[in-house]
Amino acid sequence: MASVTYTQPPPRRSPGRRFAAFLYRHPRVQLSLLLATPLGWLVIAYLGSLAVLFLAAFWRLDPFTADIVKDPGLQNFQTLLDNPVYREITIRTVKIAAAVTITDAILAFPIAYYMARVATPRVRNLLVVLILMPLWSSYLVKVYAWRVILQEDGILNWALGPFGLHGPGFGEIAMWLVFSYLWLPYMILPLYAGLERIPDSLLEASGDLGARAGRTFRTIVLPLALPAVVAGSIFTFSLTLGDFITPNLVSSVQFIGNVVYANVGVANNLPLAAAFATVPVLIMIAYLLLAKRLGAFESL
């Protein structure tokens, strides 16, 4: 019987293959090559930028030449504390962000509950898509739509007219309304996910032990849904806090963002802008730490 020999082609020793073998033997080198560009980008370009911004908050503007003087000091923060206008703007921003968060939590609860516990799977999937759709629609388009609705000759005043009523016009109420509209989907989705995770057996047990629907809701559903509400509130709160376009378009009052924007652009006072910009960042860091303690990060 003739024997058949199988000959393997000799492995190619191209430079690419040699380099691949080198990488295989040196996983640390491979890791460094993988991480070099993304980390270089994020650490050098982004964190570096943030660090420069943070430093700039301690610089000041020479009052005569309007040049930036780079000797560190706290004078910008002093200005922010002393001037009642800045305090007022900060309080207004936080107040509206809080109002928006509460409004969205209240509006989101019934629909999220319906999706999680009542709707059939088909209806539920449809509702998720229906909520994602406005979430992905252009931000500016949504603000613009409200401008058209709220304006003097707009549809709202037309609808309220026969009842002798008048819409809120442009101002703080309009701002609250538009922000609540913009970020509502960001509250519904985590809340829906949170409510869906509550086991049916808990609610049944509560009923078996004699609790009425209202009591079950207060003592079982609400506490278990709280982390999800907090998770959603991270979006509603922080997105409102940093915005300056909506306040500009539907009101004439200022947010922290408006002052920052004006100081970067028109007034060209980067140090003051940077100092004021640290305010929402600090508020958000405090908020995130609180949210973490309430277990919100597991619900994101």
Binding site: V52, A274, A277
Partner: peptide, 13 residues
């Protein structure tokens, strides 16, 4: 982070 912070940081850099 608020968009305005990212925007300003990049602008300055």
């Amino acid at each position: 982070l608020p968009g305005i912070v990212t925007g300003m940081a990049l602008n300055a850099t």
